[in-house]
Structure formats: structure tokens, C-alpha cells
Lab assay of single mutants.
Amino acid sequence: MRKLSDELLIESYFKATEMNLNRDFIELIENEIKRRSLGHIISV
């Protein structure tokens, strides 16, 4: 996760939620978004 750019991480989050991927996977992405202080972009 740390090698993904912020932009790609956010894009991955939206794609994963759109495709209804595994909730655990989405939570991993959400946690990384929060760690990077980007939660305001997706309202996490």
C-alpha cells in the first residue's frame, strides 16, 4: 500500500466500492487513506 500514490489509492478505493469487493479489502484501503490523512477526500 505504501508504494501507491495518493491518487492511485483514492482511485482504488472508489473502484473497490463500486465493484462491491470484499469488505476487508476495502477496509485495508480505508485504513491506509486515514494513515495518510486523506480521509476528507472520501469522508472516512
Rank of each mutant, 00 (worst) to 15 (best):
F14D: 04
V44E: 15
R36C: 00
E7D: 10
T17A: 10
R23D: 10
D6N: 10
I41N: 06
S37R: 13
H40E: 08
S5N: 06
E30P: 00
I29V: 05
R23Q: 12
I41G: 04
S5Q: 03
F14M: 10
D24M: 10
E11T: 06
S12F: 15
D6E: 04
L8S: 12
F25H: 06
D24V: 11
K15P: 01
I33H: 00
E18S: 10
K34R: 14
N22Q: 11
S43P: 11
R35D: 04
V44P: 10
L4R: 02
I33T: 01
A16G: 05
R36Q: 00
H40C: 07
Y13H: 02
R23H: 15
L4G: 02
D24G: 10
V44H: 14
S37E: 12
E27S: 10
L4W: 15
E27A: 12
D24P: 08
S37T: 06
D6C: 04
E7H: 11
E30A: 13
T17C: 07
F25W: 14
M19Y: 05
L9K: 01
E7T: 08
D6A: 04
M19K: 09
G39Y: 09
I26E: 01
L9S: 01
E11C: 08
I41V: 11
K15T: 11
E30L: 14
N20R: 06
I42C: 04
D24K: 10
D24S: 12
L8M: 12
L28Q: 10
L21I: 10
S5L: 04
S5G: 05
R35C: 03
M19Q: 13
L28A: 14
H40K: 07
N22V: 06
L21V: 11
A16E: 10
R36S: 00
L9R: 01
L21G: 09
A16P: 01
E18L: 06
L8P: 02
L28S: 07
V44R: 13
L28P: 04
V44I: 13
D6M: 05
S43N: 14
E30V: 15
L4H: 03
S12V: 15
I26T: 03
T17D: 08
G39E: 13
E11K: 10
S12R: 05
E30Q: 08
S43E: 14
E27N: 10
I41L: 15
L8K: 12
L8N: 11
M19D: 12
E18A: 11
S37F: 11
L28M: 14
F25K: 04
D6G: 02
L8I: 11
T17V: 15
A16R: 04
G39H: 11
L38T: 02
I29W: 03
S43Y: 04
M19R: 09
L8A: 14
S43W: 02
F14L: 12
N22A: 14
L4I: 08
I41S: 06
S12Q: 14
E7Q: 12
R35S: 07
I42N: 03
L21M: 13
K34T: 09
R35K: 07
I26G: 01
Y13F: 10
E11N: 07
R36E: 00
E30M: 15
H40L: 06
R35G: 04
R23C: 07
Y13M: 02
S5M: 03
F14R: 10
K3C: 08
E11D: 09
I42F: 02
S5V: 04
I29A: 02
N31F: 10
L38A: 02
S12L: 15
E30C: 08
R36M: 00
M1C: 12
L4D: 02
E18K: 07
N20Q: 11
S12P: 00
F14T: 07
N31M: 13
N31L: 14
V44A: 15
R23W: 14
E27V: 13
T17K: 14
K3G: 13
E30W: 15
I29Q: 01
K15S: 12
L28N: 05
V44F: 11
K15G: 07
N22S: 14
Y13L: 04
D24Y: 10
K34Q: 10
L21D: 11
F14E: 06
N22F: 07
E27M: 13
M1Y: 04
F25Y: 14
I29D: 00
E18C: 09
M19I: 10
E32K: 00
E18N: 07
M1F: 05
E30T: 12
M1S: 03
T17G: 08
K15E: 10
T17Y: 13
I42Q: 03
I26N: 01
E32D: 01
E32F: 02
L28D: 06
N20V: 06
I33Y: 01
L4C: 07
E11W: 11
N22D: 15
I33P: 00
R23I: 13
I29F: 09
D24C: 07
R23Y: 13
L9I: 04
R36V: 01
D6L: 06
E18P: 01
E18I: 07
I26C: 01
I10F: 05
S37N: 15
E11Q: 11
R2F: 06
S12I: 15
L8R: 09
M1G: 02
L38Q: 03
M19P: 02
I33W: 01
R36F: 01
S5T: 11
N31G: 08
L9A: 01
K15I: 13
I33A: 02
E7V: 10
F14W: 12
I42E: 03
D24A: 13
E27Y: 08
T17W: 14
R2L: 12
S5K: 03
R36W: 01
V44T: 14
D24L: 11
K34W: 08
I10E: 02
K3P: 03
M19E: 14
I33V: 06
L9F: 02
L9Y: 01
A16S: 07
I42H: 04
N31P: 01
N31W: 06
R2S: 15
K3L: 06
E32N: 01
S43I: 14
V44D: 15
E7I: 10
E32R: 00
I10M: 07
I29P: 00
R2W: 05
R2P: 04
L38H: 02
D24W: 14
K34L: 12
E11V: 06
G39T: 13
G39P: 05
T17L: 15
I41W: 09
E32A: 02
R35P: 00
I33L: 15
G39V: 08
E32T: 01
F25G: 03
E27C: 06
S37W: 07
E11S: 06
V44N: 15
E27G: 07
Y13I: 02
N20Y: 07
L38M: 08
N20K: 07
R35W: 03
S5P: 09
L38V: 03
L4E: 02
N20T: 05
G39K: 06
F14P: 00
S12C: 08
I41M: 15
V44S: 15
S43L: 11
V44W: 08
I42K: 04
E32H: 02
E27I: 13
G39M: 09
K34E: 08
I41C: 07
L38S: 02
K34Y: 10
S5R: 03
D24N: 10
E11P: 01
M19S: 12
T17E: 11
E32C: 01
M1R: 02
L38D: 02
S5W: 03
T17Q: 14
L28I: 11
I33F: 03
E30D: 03
D6I: 06
N20F: 07
E11Y: 09
F14K: 11
S43D: 13
L4F: 08
E32Y: 01
H40G: 09
L9H: 00
N20E: 12
L9C: 01
E32V: 02
Y13D: 00
I10K: 03
L38K: 03
R23S: 14
E11H: 08
N22Y: 06
F25V: 09
L8F: 10
K15Y: 15
F14A: 06
K15A: 13
I10Q: 02
L4S: 03
H40I: 06
L21P: 05
I41A: 13
S37V: 06
A16N: 04
F25S: 05
R35H: 06
R2K: 11
G39R: 05
N31S: 12
E7L: 10
K3H: 12
I33D: 00
T17H: 15
I26R: 04
A16Y: 08
I42V: 08
H40R: 06
N20G: 15
L9Q: 01
L21C: 08
Y13T: 00
I42T: 05
K3R: 05
F25I: 12
N31H: 10
R23A: 14
N20L: 09
I10N: 01
K3I: 06
K3T: 15
S12E: 15
S5E: 04
R2E: 14
R36K: 00
E27Q: 13
I29T: 01
K34F: 10
S43G: 14
V44G: 13
Y13S: 00
G39D: 13
K3S: 14
N22H: 12
E30G: 06
S37K: 14
R35Q: 05
R2Q: 15
E32I: 02
A16T: 04
M19G: 12
N31Q: 14
I29N: 00
L38C: 03
M1P: 04
D6S: 05
I33N: 00
E7K: 12
A16L: 04
I10W: 05
F14G: 04
F14H: 10
D6W: 05
D6V: 05
L28Y: 04
S37Y: 09
E27W: 08
R36L: 01
R2M: 14
K15F: 14
D24I: 11
